[in-house]
Nucleic acid binder design. Structure first.
Lengths: 194, 194
DNA sequence: CTTTCCGGAATGAACGTTCCGTCAGTTATA
DNA sequence: TATAACTGACGGAACGTTCATTCCGGAAAG
């Protein structure tokens, strides 16, 4: 009996993530990916039907870990402001340490792959479902505002700046230090107050 | 002598923009592009050295028109707040009407093409140059803040939400009406105040 | 007639996918 | 325990397709 049969699939997924992030989907021939992973071309097709399925599998893995991380570091006992700032700061820290994941997601979403997909499924559907810390935070913020805060605006002011900043940091235009991260979190909170 | 020699080049550029925006770079064979433009394959290579040059040419055209539009609708006699809100509102309106341009830019920047490029050249270099309304606005805002406003933060809070919102609008997740646009502009201004 | 422009068939390379021989590990046989 | 038969993971050569690019014959312009 093999206790670790799907280890190779993990290696392929991890390598694919790096390869795609660095070179893009089209400049990542399966052959190159295979040699980088130390694996035969044929083996990749043992675990994934075709290249598209591989790409979606990488996305699924990255997406799930991201969601988990976000929903994990959530202390619902804090004030709205503290929760929001914690969310933004943690998110930036997390993605800053994972440039491959970030680049992959960017590419995935702005390609036909992500467009045809649920896209912001997480950001929209997830936030609305009541029994999760996200929904509570949004509901709470929204309620205290004078004019009702639309969900799209909340998402745009929360995640828009984060993405923009990470992009610039990755391009080397910005030194994304802790001070800047905290300023960003504070600023995006300010934007939500009425 | 031809009085309208580059007319065909214009048609190719325009068609390429649409084709790329709708199908992505790799799912846009030159042959398909040619027939869509009502042009022979060979003709495309008369005006553009290869596919890469075509892609960059499309970018250049889109980028230049965008920059021009932004710097044009700028009334430097208004207050900082009014200028900022005008900027954001105009930008959203402009891009909302041009989904092809928006999708193309997104794709370009998150692909190896844009990455190897100047990227936020416009957003960074341009803003800093003194003799333009942008630089003045940023300088003015920055100066009035208690703690100095870093340029990256200003850019992130100004353009980040815009991009995020447009993305969602294009995906059909958000009805981007005038009320939402104005709320966004107001919110991003709030974020900049100290 | 000469020159410039144009279209699209032809070419060659790159790539995704398939297919098959090899081999390590496992099970059956004696 | 030793040996033979089996099984399925594995690599990579080979295949067929797709596509960027070239090239040439003809049309239009002068």
């Amino acid at each position: 009996m093999k206790q670790v049969p799907p280890q190779k699939a993990e290696i392929i997924l991890q390598t694919a993530l790096e390869q795609f992030a660095e070179n893009g989907f089209h400049s990542s021939p399966i052959s190159q990916l295979a040699s980088r992973a130390g694996v035969g071309v044929g083996s990749i097709y043992r675990y994934f039907k075709d290249k598209d399925e591989l790409i979606h599998a990488v996305f699924k893995q990255v997406d799930e870990e991201l969601q988990q991380t976000i929903t994990h570091n959530f202390d619902s006992t804090l004030s709205d402001q503290q929760q929001h700032i914690q969310l933004v700061v943690n998110l930036i820290h997390y993605l800053k340490e994972r440039p491959h994941e970030f680049k992959f997601l960017e590419q995935y979403y702005s390609s036909p792959y992500g467009s045809e997909e649920k896209h912001a499924k997480f950001l929209h559907a997830e936030v609305k479902e009541p029994p999760n810390p996200f929904a509570n935070l949004f509901a709470s913020i929204s309620q205290k505002n004078q004019q009702k805060l639309p969900l799209p605006l909340y998402l745009a002011m929360t995640f828009g700046p984060v993405i923009f900043l990470l992009r610039d940091a990755l391009s080397g235009y910005v030194e994304l230090d802790d001070a800047l991260i905290e300023q960003t979190a504070a600023a995006s909170w300010r934007a939500l107050e009425t």
